[in-house]
Write a protein that binds this DNA or RNA. Structure first.
Length: 577
DNA sequence: GCCGTTTTCGGCCCGACTGTTTTCAGTCG
């Protein structure tokens, strides 16, 4: 059993306890434990083996025992008892917007509703009317909510949500009534997928903002509208929440509205212990009600006695503790990057010439750019033969005279074959400056086979970077079955870098694994895997993943100057005669 | 159920909006 599986069991216990109307703080304890397990970078089995379960935040004696039981028996007796009491389908009712634990319990007890389908049929027959607190409007909302569930409320990838959100910001900031505007929520924290877009505006005239916002052409439906808060459905499907506050509350509101929810709870608990109250309106002294901060976000953190915590870290994954102990990371920024270490050209499946790639990289101010086209096994991507590769290397060397201001690195995105050998022989790899390796075939290999395949590739002295290490495509393809612990250990042993692929559909490694890599001392490369020149701009998404992974400049090899990068790249190579 | 340079017991974040109510419970973030 892995961390996420145990977390899921705890979440289910919390759901069931909510329906039973159990102690709210007990429920929160289960949820917090689940979330801490989700952000834990060490394997839970390893933690249990060294007797460290109770050291995990939010896990005490009782939950540690439940984790051990699950690890040993594959079951959790307490959860089994709860499941026997309340059918699975009742929990699923809570997925309907507007239906929470109280309503689910009411429906189950009064009408024996135990599935979304049953609920829909009873609602259509008018049989919900007459339940306490249920009139036609509630029935309508439930039916509407069921449609939302059926449509599948999938989360939108960051790379799609960001441009759409920036468009709304550009429109709203034109309004003279808008003083300040910012993205908030999970989008500001740069999570890889988002459920909705959160916008925060300060204005002395909220009514005007509300009116304009809810009647934008991008709005397909107004879901909720109050005096200072509105929720709409964007024509591209995602929900957008807008909140308007007074200008002097901007910092407090931004802090509150950025979340995460668990981070905020953490911060507010900490404030309470200091006799302070934090809300979206400011930081107040509990005793006197005096407001001591609110206009700026940094000021809000400082008033509570914390340094500013960057949005990407606000997941209650140890950042508050790190802030208190003065060991927050100095997160890397986009401008720290000196080059791109994964890019294609029209020699394989890129859409541009070598020269166009070089010139685009130069315009970005890069010190170096790699040319890493596909190897012969990647037939669908037009992979090139060894002869063609040598020809390309010659071309690159010739072009470096034409472009003296940027170093053109000869590279390859070389396939890792099913047996773990590389698609080019060592004699060819030895000609390259940087070798990127990747898996593009035989995704369905079993776990042991896939792990051995990758570990073998990483042991090759000519390999430098392992690209998109899990192979997942967000929302499309699951990662291949591989023991990431073993891959990370091999990367450390052989001194290889793992890639954070910045393609919006990949973001691979993800934030979790990248943080794990850093903790093990494995270096990362943030690369765009550019096929079309515009994609060089995706670097910002890769940086977002890196920041969420607590990465600093020193952790990322393409922040290094060229000479340091090349020294690192060539130190493991056998000396050629 | 967790947790403690105030506490091993008694706390545990805070407010907006909706639908149903004449003051509030439920839901959401």
């Amino acid at each position: 059993m892995r961390n996420l599986e145990i977390a899921t069991l705890f979440h289910e216990i919390a759901d069931l306890l909510e329906i039973k109307d159990d102690n709210a703080f007990k429920i929160r304890a289960y949820r917090r434990a689940a979330m801490n397990l989700e952000s834990l970078t060490e394997e839970i089995e390893a933690v249990a083996a060294r007797g460290g379960l109770a050291d995990i935040a939010g896990i005490g004696k009782d939950l540690a025992a439940k984790i051990r039981q699950a690890l040993e028996t594959g079951r959790m007796a307490y959860l089994d008892e709860l499941r026997a009491e309340i059918p699975r389908g009742v929990v699923e009712l809570m997925a309907i917007p507007g239906v929470g634990p109280k309503t689910a319990k009411l429906l189950f007890q009064q009408l024996q509703v135990d599935s979304v389908e049953t609920l829909e049929s009873l609602a259509l027959q008018g049989k919900l009317l007459g339940l306490p607190g249920v009139k036609q409007k509630t029935v309508d909302n439930i039916l509407k909510g069921i449609q939302v569930v059926k449509a599948g409320r999938e989360r939108m990838p960051l790379g799609r949500a960001l441009p759409l959100a920036h468009e709304l910001v550009r429109i709203l900031e034109q309004l003279p009534e808008v003083r300040q505007i910012s993205l908030a929520g999970s989008l500001r924290r740069m999570r890889e997928t988002v459920k909705d877009v959160d916008l925060l505006v300060t204005s002395a005239q909220p009514a005007k903002i509300m009116a304009v916002f809810t009647s934008l052409p991008q709005v397909s439906e107004v879901l909720l509208q109050g005096e200072t808060k509105a929720t709409i459905r964007h024509r591209e499907g995602i929900q957008v929440d807008l909140r308007v506050v007074e200008p002097d509350c901007f910092g407090a509101a931004l802090q509150y509205f950025t979340g995460s929810k668990t981070h905020n709870i953490r911060v507010r608990e900490f404030a309470v212990r200091k006799g302070l109250k934090v809300s979206e309106y400011g930081v107040f002294q509990e005793a006197t009600g005096t407001r001591i901060a609110g206009a700026g976000e940094e000021e809000v953190y400082n008033a509570i006695g914390l340094p500013y915590i960057p949005p990407e870290l606000r997941e209650d994954a140890g950042e508050v503790e790190a802030a208190l102990e003065g060991r927050l990371p100095h997160l890397l920024t986009l401008s720290d990057l000196r080059g791109d270490l994964h890019a294609h050209t029209n020699w394989t499946d890129g859409h541009h010439t070598l020269e166009a790639l070089i010139e685009a990289a130069q315009r970005k101010g890069y010190e170096y750019i790699i040319v890493s086209d596909h190897s012969r096994a990647a037939t669908v991507a037009g992979g090139i033969s060894e002869e063609k590769l040598l020809e390309q290397i010659g071309r690159i060397r010739a072009l470096s005279k034409k472009y003296p201001k940027i170093r053109i690195l000869a590279g390859s995105e070389c396939d890792i074959l099913a047996d773990g050998s590389l698609d080019f022989p060592d004699r060819a790899l030895a000609q390259l400056d940087i070798v990127v390796c990747a898996i593009h075939s035989r995704f369905k290999q079993d776990r042991a086979g896939m792990t051995a395949r990758i570990v073998k590739a990483l042991s090759n002295p000519y390999v430098h970077i392992f690209a998109h290490p899990t192979g997942r495509l967000i929302g499309e393809r699951d990662p291949y079955d591989v023991d990431m612990e073993a891959v990370l250990a091999a990367a450390r042993q052989y001194g290889k870098a793992l890639e954070i692929n910045a393609q919006p559909s990949r973001l691979d490694l993800n934030d979790h694994h990248a943080r794990q890599a850093k903790e093990l001392g494995v270096k990362l490369a943030i690369s765009t895997d550019t096929h079309v020149l515009d994609q060089l701009d995706n670097m910002a998404l890769g940086v977002a993943v890196a920041r969420r992974a607590w990465l600093e400049k020193a952790d990322v090899i393409n922040t290094w100057p060229l000479d340091k990068l090349l020294t690192w790249a060539h130190k493991s190579r056998p000396k050629v005669a």
